[in-house]
């Protein structure tokens, strides 16, 4: 009886999935001509707003939009742009060499603030749900794991710090950097049998890092009249000390993510104490 019901369920689910699949594939394979469709194969980036992020001429584009009104939408690529050269160009908007970073932290920094909040609230919920979780012991770590954990821990942390400090220059940034540090904490949990959770410490670090992010935003609001404005000089593109608050925010994000995820892993492991 139960099996029949399962079969019927599976059948209807399969039917729904097939219908949705036809729906999606039909949408994706719509022929060109009848209105806009997904920009496939060689997407014309000059039809998208990101052309200005790439060329770093958003302020010019704002002026162009204000002057030419709706004709802007047809002539995005006519917006003036300056020549960008690694290690030479100064004050190229945010000044970060990694375009993804400049979008994540600068052009759309507000999303990142929300994203950090999502992580914050979910780790908070995890702590609430699991605070009386009993510690589960894993198989006794072998000598190699123990030694390896002790030996590798500082290097992994250092690598994580490197990743988020260089977030505005190289691939990486606050989120992967923080996660790498959290994986060092994971290594300690697996490698050290008598690992003690340090939740109060992570809480304080997390709070201060979050405060830095939101506080930098508010400083921008009160000095330059807009939340999360880059109020520091953005420097030469490609240098370590450049891109103003972008680098600072990414460092804060890295520290915050590291603290949050480490505490999340500790609480997942159990034995969390306040």
């Amino acid at each position: 009886m139960k099996n029949t019901q399962g079969m019927v369920n599976a059948f209807f689910a399969f039917l729904l999935v097939v219908i949705l699949g036809i729906f999606f594939f039909n949408a994706i394979n719509q022929p060109l001509g009848n209105g806009l469709v997904l920009n496939k194969d060689n997407p014309d980036l000059s039809k998208r707003v990101s052309i200005h992020y790439i060329l770093k001429n958003v302020h010019n584009a704002e002026d162009y939009l204000a002057q030419h009104k709706s004709s802007y939408f047809r002539n995005r690529d006519k917006v003036k742009s300056s020549n960008l050269e690694f290690g030479k160009t100064k004050n190229a908007e945010s000044g970060s060499a990694n375009e993804v970073t400049s979008i994540v932290v600068n052009y759309r920094g507000f999303d990142t603030l929300g994203e950090v909040t999502v992580l914050f609230i979910s780790i908070l919920g995890l702590g609430m749900l699991l605070h009386e979780n009993k510690k589960k012991y894993w198989a006794k770590p072998s000598l190699i794991v123990r030694t390896g954990a002790n030996f590798l821990f500082p290097f992994i942390v250092l690598f994580g710090v490197y990743v988020f400090v260089h977030g505005h220059l190289t691939p990486g940034g606050g989120f992967p950097g923080g996660t790498i540090i959290a994986s060092a904490a994971l290594l300690l949990i697996l490698g050290l049998k008598d690992f003690k959770n340090k939740l109060t410490m992570t809480k304080i670090i997390e709070s201060l890092a979050g405060l830095t992010f939101a506080g930098l935003g508010l400083v921008g609001l009160f000095t330059n009249g807009s939340f999360l404005t880059n109020f520091l000089p953005s420097g030469t593109m490609g240098l370590l000390v450049s891109s103003g608050i972008t680098a600072l925010i990414y460092i804060a994000v890295g520290i915050k993510v590291a603290a949050e995820l480490s505490s999340g892993i500790m609480e997942m492991n159990g034995g969390g104490e306040e």
Partner: peptide, 18 residues
């Protein structure tokens, strides 16, 4: 590359661990 690093660290690493 940014997404690749993040996905490898979070999706394949930490997510599997939890």
């Amino acid at each position: 590359p940014d997404v690749a690093i993040t996905e490898a660290a979070i999706g394949a690493g930490l997510s599997t661990a939890i």
